[in-house]
Design a protein around this nucleic acid. Structure first.
Length: 281
DNA sequence: TTTCCTGTTAGTGT
DNA sequence: AACACTAACAGGAA
């Protein structure tokens, strides 16, 4: 699932691959994914040159040469895969290529999405700041300016929230999803159901360190190919062997040897080690 | 065969 | 306001 490390991997790859290229054509196989009229979408996108590839939270931002920005969210199963002229995707994947961007040099970018929850929308570049302000997204956790003091202040706003849900809420901190929230809490030794107001100072500190450490390491290994994720080159990420709890229900804890457990929190699954992450300390 | 479950988030309901 | 729940979807597992 594309969370911050996966989306950022795609961003940095696309930056090298398509910045400077002009879009000459776009195929839209699934109009539902385009959050504006197709006519308008085509009119704005076709003929534009890509000037930059940015990211905010889990959203990719293609800066176009005509004053517009294209926002792409991959949601659960989206992929953005680049292919040089003449190269195609595997046949079995082709039926999920809902949008295809053609560039002047014959290369293409495939927006592939099995579950079809992803979207693309257009925002005028000078209104981007307003747009993100309205979304109320929390800070980017890997930026140097996101400090322990910031984290503590944000925690204080939601004293009653459960820490697992807090970490996944994009309005608190942006970019963390189900996989990395589980991994961060295992690192911190904090049970996913712990209430924020009841966290000890040491646990708060360790959770903050976990955010920085886990996301940085996952990014270094180009993310986790749980399920369907592939990067912009169509390759899997390499972080899965490093996952300590996510997707490991019933398997041995890598720290204490006990069995990893799973429970539901707000409709989501949380994976944790019941002896390394206690409910009460 | 059918039902359940998985991921993210916008939207609705309490 | 702040929280909880669900729909949107396809496909793999039970």
């Amino acid at each position: 699932m594309p969370e911050l490390p996966e989306v950022e991997t795609i961003r940095s790859q696309l930056e090298k691959l398509i910045v400077g290229k002009k879009i000459t054509k776009v195929d839209v196989g699934l109009p539902r994914m385009v959050k504006l009229s197709l006519d308008k979408f085509r009119k704005i996108v076709v003929g534009a040159k890509i000037e930059s590839i940015g990211r905010r939270a889990k959203i990719l931002i293609f800066g176009l040469s005509n004053g517009w920005s294209m926002l792409i969210h991959l949601k659960l199963s989206g992929r953005l895969i680049f292919r040089k002229k003449g190269e195609i995707l595997k046949d079995e994947d082709a039926k999920w290529n809902h949008l295809i961007y053609y560039f002047q040099d014959g290369s293409r970018l495939f927006h592939n999405d099995l579950r079809q929850f992803g979207y693309v929308k257009l925002i005028e570049t000078d209104k981007l700041a307003d747009f993100f302000k309205k979304e109320k997204l929390g800070p980017e956790p890997l930026k140097k300016y996101f400090t322990f003091e910031d984290f503590s202040a944000i925690l204080k706003r939601k004293p009653k929230a459960k820490i697992k849900q807090f970490l996944m809420d994009q309005q608190n901190i942006s970019g963390i999803g189900n996989i990395y929230s589980d991994e961060i809490l295992f690192f911190a030794g904090v049970h996913p159901l712990r209430k924020i107001s009841e966290l000890k100072p040491k646990e708060t500190k360790k959770t903050f360190q976990g955010i920085k450490k886990i996301l940085t390491e996952a990014l270094k290994l180009q993310g986790s190919s749980v399920d369907l994720y592939l990067n912009a080159l169509g390759k899997e990420g390499e972080y899965v062997p490093r996952l300590k709890v996510y997707g490991r229900e019933g398997e041995k804890c890598k720290k204490c040897g006990g069995a990893i457990q799973r429970l539901k929190i707000g409709g989501r699954s949380a994976h944790y080690c019941p002896s390394c992450q206690k409910v009460l300390n």
